Simulated assay, not measured.
Amino acid sequence: MEFIKYDALENDYLVLDPASCDLTLDPAVIRRICDRRHGLGSDGILYGPHLDDGQYGLRIFNPDGTECEKSGNGLRIFARYLRDAGYVTAGTAQVYLMMSDAMVDVAYLGDQDDLIQVAMGQYTLRSSEIPVLLELPVVLGVKMQVGQHSLTASCVNLGNPHCVVLDLPVTENTARTVGPALCESDLFPERVNVQITRVVDRQTLEIEIWERGAGYTLASGSSSCAAAITCHQLGLVDAEVTVHMPGGTVGVQIDKASGVHLTGPVKAVFAANLSQDLNSYLAKDK
Rank of each mutant, 00 (worst) to 15 (best):
M1V: 07
E2G: 00
D7R: 05
L9M: 11
Y13K: 06
L23V: 01
T24N: 12
A28Y: 06
R31Y: 11
R32V: 02
R32D: 04
C34M: 00
C34D: 01
D35N: 14
G39P: 03
G44R: 08
L46Q: 09
P49R: 03
G54D: 10
G54I: 07
G54C: 08
Q55S: 14
Y56P: 02
G57M: 08
L58Q: 08
L58K: 04
D64F: 13
G65N: 10
G65K: 09
T66V: 05
S71D: 07
L75Y: 00
L75P: 00
F78W: 08
V88N: 02
A90V: 00
G91F: 02
G91W: 01
G91I: 01
A93N: 12
L97Q: 06
M98W: 09
M99H: 15
S100T: 04
M103F: 03
M103T: 14
M103R: 13
V104Q: 05
V104I: 15
V104L: 05
V106H: 06
Q112M: 04
Q112N: 13
Q112H: 12
D114H: 14
D114R: 13
L115R: 05
L115N: 02
Q117G: 02
Q117V: 00
A119P: 00
A119Y: 04
Y123C: 06
T124S: 15
L125F: 15
L125Y: 14
R126W: 03
R126L: 14
R126I: 10
R126G: 05
S127E: 07
P131D: 12
V132S: 07
L133N: 11
P137Q: 01
V138G: 03
G141W: 05
G141K: 03
M144N: 00
V146E: 07
G147M: 02
H149E: 06
A153N: 01
S154A: 08
S154H: 04
C155K: 13
V156M: 09
V156D: 08
N157W: 14
N157H: 15
V164Y: 09
V165L: 08
L166F: 15
D167S: 10
P169A: 05
T177K: 02
T177H: 06
A181K: 09
A181L: 09
L182E: 03
C183Y: 06
E184N: 14
S185K: 12
L187T: 07
E190Q: 15
E190I: 14
R191F: 07
V192N: 07
T197W: 13
R198W: 01
R198Y: 02
V199A: 04
D201F: 03
R202C: 10
R202S: 14
Q203A: 13
Q203S: 14
T204V: 03
I207V: 15
E211V: 11
E211N: 12
R212D: 13
R212N: 12
G213W: 08
G215Q: 09
T217N: 10
S220P: 10
G221V: 07
A227P: 03
I229R: 10
I229D: 06
L234N: 05
V237N: 05
A239M: 03
H244P: 01
M245W: 07
G247N: 00
G248P: 08
G251W: 03
G251I: 02
G251T: 05
V252R: 04
V260S: 04
H261C: 11
H261K: 14
A271Y: 04
L282V: 08
K284A: 13
